[in-house]
Amino acid sequence: LADDRTLLMAGVSHDLRTPLTRIRLATEMMSEQDGYLAESINKDIEECNAIIEQFIDYLR
């Protein structure tokens, strides 16, 4: 059971955070005209990261 939990934490961490990191990188490359959009996307990314952290904390 502990091994399954560790594997799940690693999978969640990698499989969800990697795309979020790519999205954040894309927002950094957006033009200044789209700053409001990038800010909104980054806020959503932070919310997703917080949910992931809560899930990982729960698994521990």
Rank of each mutant, 00 (worst) to 15 (best):
L1T: 13
L1R: 12
L1I: 13
A2K: 07
A2C: 13
A2N: 14
D3W: 14
D3S: 04
D3Y: 09
R5Y: 09
R5P: 09
R5D: 04
R5V: 11
T6Y: 02
T6M: 13
T6E: 00
T6G: 06
L7S: 04
L7M: 04
L7I: 12
L7Y: 00
L8D: 05
M9P: 12
M9R: 02
M9N: 12
A10D: 03
A10C: 02
A10T: 00
A10H: 00
A10S: 00
A10L: 09
G11P: 12
G11Q: 00
G11K: 09
V12A: 11
S13I: 11
S13K: 08
S13M: 08
H14S: 00
D15F: 01
D15Y: 02
D15R: 00
D15M: 00
D15K: 00
L16I: 00
L16N: 01
R17S: 09
R17Y: 00
T18R: 08
T18A: 03
T18C: 09
T18P: 10
P19S: 01
P19Y: 00
L20I: 00
L20Q: 00
L20Y: 01
T21L: 08
T21E: 15
T21M: 10
I23A: 08
I23E: 02
L25N: 02
A26P: 15
A26C: 14
T27R: 06
T27V: 13
E28N: 07
E28I: 10
E28F: 15
E28M: 04
E28P: 13
M29T: 10
M29R: 01
M30P: 09
S31L: 07
S31H: 07
S31N: 06
E32I: 07
E32S: 07
D34S: 12
G35W: 00
Y36R: 06
Y36V: 12
L37D: 09
A38Y: 06
A38N: 07
A38W: 11
A38L: 08
E39Y: 04
E39T: 10
S40W: 00
I41P: 03
I41H: 01
I41T: 15
I41A: 00
N42S: 00
K43F: 15
K43E: 00
D44P: 07
D44V: 08
D44M: 03
I45K: 08
I45W: 10
I45N: 06
E46H: 11
E46C: 00
E46V: 08
E47K: 08
E47W: 03
C48P: 14
C48S: 11
N49Y: 05
N49F: 15
A50H: 04
A50I: 04
I51F: 04
I51R: 11
I52H: 02
I52L: 06
I52R: 11
I52G: 14
E53I: 15
E53C: 12
E53V: 04
Q54Y: 08
Q54K: 13
Q54A: 09
F55A: 00
F55N: 05
F55M: 03
F55R: 00
I56L: 04
I56A: 12
I56C: 03
D57I: 12
Y58H: 14
L59N: 15
L59H: 10
L59Y: 12
L59F: 13
